[in-house]
Design a protein around this nucleic acid. Structure first.
Length: 723
DNA sequence: TGTTTCGACGTTTTT
DNA sequence: CGTCGAAACA
């Protein structure tokens, strides 16, 4: 027991040893949160003899769950003793509970899980059903509203209606749910909401889960939403041995319904909770912590914390003003090369972070140009590639033939002469018979007795459209019958072959080969389910792939810098961190500028980024940035300005090709343009100078152009002429 | 029914 | 700039 607690500080030790009753741990970045969680689980199992299956631990990502399992096993020393541990993300655990209890709550246990793209598709179908115009009611916005409602545990009937738009949302929401139900499908938010509703409505189930989970642990508690909070509150209601760890300063998922005020709610719901503060940081230098503090202290709604470290001051933070995004990328890569050449860090210990995924492109191009390897988190995710989604749709149809979303996706992929008209007729006819599309097809094929309605209403298909339908049904049925007999991998092989998908995909082009490679990769994933009982394997595979995130498959082994969004960076640490795009409109993002609460979240995002760094931090912004094909001047981020100059060094503006090619027409120190003067620009044409001011060695003018309106320009770069 | 081309429009962040 | 949807065509 001593060795388990040996490398913990007194606060951490207290967090591990307080096993009875509710505990709230407020853990600053780098304060050993993961260590506390793993040691606590190990302590429960090893020292208190708690059965692992009576412990539930919830993490934010699958990767965090994997790390936790691995380290806990190492601490317990015997992997058999941790094997029953219930550990995973909220979504994954709920998916499992729902699958197990499905029969008791009237849910099809073969339900499929919809991803974001599928969800949008269903919203569009719902709009269509209701004869509403997509242009007037953007599906994205409607889906966001539905998602928000679900995270607040509101059913369509509960949805409050104050405006005409609410009325629309409520109706679309209702129709959307009907469609999901008809296809035995759940979306991400349903996983949480349905789990909560199950526990609320079935006392016996709730009682059983409460009896089972003697100990509950929750990581990243500040990012729980109402549904997740409620789930924990319900489950913890029995033993009340609930242990939550969070940091309100790192709450960055408000847009997803997360509310760090759940920390406050927890203290109200569990007034006897012991509160433990972890303020000692083991990750970063004092310089980095000071910068982080300087940024976060402007937030109003937070408990002040005093992070400290004994790691010493370390090097100053480098603030770099790049000319544009290309220069930004060159600078970052140059620094990585410099530091790695000096032997100071390994490339894999470097991370480049940004606010939006779109920013990764310029960086990637720079890596490719230099022939340097890199690891990218996110962007085009593997599981959202077209070919992968197609193949998964086939598998989902086999798992759950009622899944009409998947059916619509692949019934004519590869082309089988089943067009939109035929498909619509089919689902229309199925609806009239009160059957799912699959069962309507069965009736059509004579595999099932037609219901009374079908005798009055003959099927509406022409000979030409009937044949392909029957052919498709025959293959589909064959796969379904294979379902229980062979492993998912074998099933996949069979489907790829007899659906014609393989031959269709491999059309001889390079792109086709690449896509086929991706399918092969999915085949490899499926191969991991070889040993599982066949009836369990397919559902397990589909659940697995529906719930993985980008962060999860970041390969630890590859020795290359990581490119990732600030959101994806949460929970990670790197020796050297570059935060790029430190500009107004990007960080903070322009969409957040209006709303003070969003602005606070942007600040937390900056804080999360800064505190990922162990040794060196670079904050980079560009003078000019091209977005959407338009190049515009940028202002340094307000967060940059909050960092005391004493903590930073400024790198001088680089001698850039562009700048040197075009000798400066400005004499340093002078002002060459006065308000009111007429000027000409090679692109923008004629204009009048509005203002002019010094910018370092340069002169910045704003000019009202006749054609394009007001532009801000640097005199050294814009070839402005007096007229 | 399938393919091509053009125009409008848009992006924050993700389980 | 890129994707998506509708119209125009084969």
């Amino acid at each position: 027991m001593t060795d388990l607690l040996a490398h913990l500080n007194p606060r951490q030790r207290e967090a591990v040893l307080t096993t009875a009753g509710p505990v709230l741990v407020l853990a600053g970045p780098g304060s050993g949160k993961t260590r506390v969680l793993t040691h606590r689980v190990a302590y429960l199992i090893r020292e208190l003899g708690v059965e692992p299956w009576r412990i539930m631990a919830v993490t934010f990502t699958n990767k965090a769950a994997d790390v936790m399992r691995e380290r806990t096993e190492a601490l317990v020393g015997d992997e058999h003793r941790t094997s029953g541990l219930v550990l995973g993300t909220f979504h994954r655990l709920c998916a499992r509970f729902l699958r197990i209890e499905a029969v008791h709550i009237g849910l099809n246990p073969r339900y499929v899980i919809l991803d974001a793209e599928d969800q949008l598709e269903v919203v569009k179908q719902a709009l269509n059903d209701l004869n509403l115009d997509e242009k007037r009611f953007p599906p994205r916005a409607l889906h966001a509203a539905i998602s928000r409602a679900k995270n607040e545990l509101m059913t369509p009937a509960d949805f409050p209606i104050a405006t005409y738009r609410d009325e629309i949302v409520a109706r679309v929401y209702e129709r959307y749910q009907q469609r999901l139900q008809a296809g035995s499908a759940l979306d991400f938010d349903d996983l949480l909401m349905q789990a909560v509703l199950m526990l609320r409505q079935h006392e016996d189930i709730l009682a059983a889960y409460r009896r089972r989970f003697e100990y509950i642990l929750v990581d990243e508690f500040q990012d729980t939403n109402t549904a997740q909070y409620e789930l924990i509150r319900l489950l913890a209601g029995g033993y009340r041995n609930v242990f939550v760890v969070g940091d309100e300063d790192q709450s960055i998922y408000r847009w997803r319904g997360a509310d760090f005020r759940n920390v406050l709610r927890f203290r109200e719901d569990f007034p006897d909770a012991k509160v433990i503060l972890l303020e000692q940081n083991y990750r970063s230098t004092q310089t980095i912590l000071d910068a982080a503090n300087a940024v976060i202290k402007a937030n109003r709604y937070r408990t002040p914390k005093k992070l400290f470290t004994d790691r010493g001051r370390g090097p100053a933070i480098v603030v770099y003003r790049a000319y544009d995004e290309h220069d930004e990328a060159e600078f970052v890569l140059g620094e990585i090369e410099r530091l790695t050449a000096a032997g100071e860090v390994r490339p894999g210990q470097c991370a480049i972070m940004y606010r939006t995924n779109a920013q990764s492109r310029t960086l990637e191009e720079a890596f490719v140009r230099r022939g340097m390897p890199y690891r990218l988190v996110g962007a085009t995710r593997f599981y959202s590639r077209r070919e992968i989604k197609d193949v998964l749709a086939y598998l989902r149809l086999i798992q759950n033939p009622d899944d009409e979303i998947s059916l619509r996706r692949i019934i004519n992929v590869p082309p089988r002469r089943i067009g939109a008209t035929t498909l619509n007729r089919l689902s229309q006819w199925a609806r009239e018979l009160g059957l799912s599309t699959y069962r309507a097809l069965r009736v059509l094929a004579g595999a099932e007795e037609p219901p009374a309605a079908a005798r009055e209403r003959r099927h509406p298909f022409t000979k030409a459209s009937l044949a392909p339908l029957l052919d498709f049904y025959a293959r589909w049925q064959e796969w379904i019958e294979l379902r229980g007999a062979v492993s998912p991998g074998r099933l996949l092989d069979r489907v790829l072959e007899s659906s014609g998908y393989r031959d269709w995909l491999r059309d001889g082009t390079e792109e086709g080969e690449e896509r086929w490679q991706n399918v092969q990769e999915l085949r490899n994933v499926a191969a991991a389910y070889e040993d599982m009982p066949t009836d369990m394997a397919l559902p397990a595979l589909l659940e697995e792939v529906a719930l993985v995130s980008d962060v999860d498959d970041l390969k630890e082994t590859a020795e290359a810098p990581v490119l990732l969004t600030l959101h994806a960076a949460k929970g990670m640490e790197f020796a050297v961190v570059f935060i790029t795009g430190m500009e107004e409109g990007l960080l903070p993002h322009s969409n957040a500028l209006e709303d003070p609460e969003s602005l606070e979240e942007e600040r937390r995002l900056a804080y999360v980024g800064i505190t990922r760094a162990q040794d060196r931090l670079y904050l980079v912004y560009a003078f000019r940035r091209t977005a959407w094909g338009r190049s515009d001047l940028a202002q340094p981020s307000r967060f940059l300005i909050d960092i005391p100059p004493a903590l930073t060094t400024d790198k001088p503006l680089p001698r850039r090709r562009v700048a040197s090619q075009r000798p400066a027409v400005v004499i340093p120190g002078g002002i060459h343009f006065q308000p009111g003067q007429q000027v000409r620009h090679p692109q923008f044409g004629l204009g009048i100078v509005i203002t002019s001011r010094r910018m370092g060695d340069d002169e910045e003018v704003s000019v009202a152009f006749e054609r394009v309106g007001i532009k801000r320009l640097l005199v050294s770069l814009a070839r402005l002429e007096h007229v």
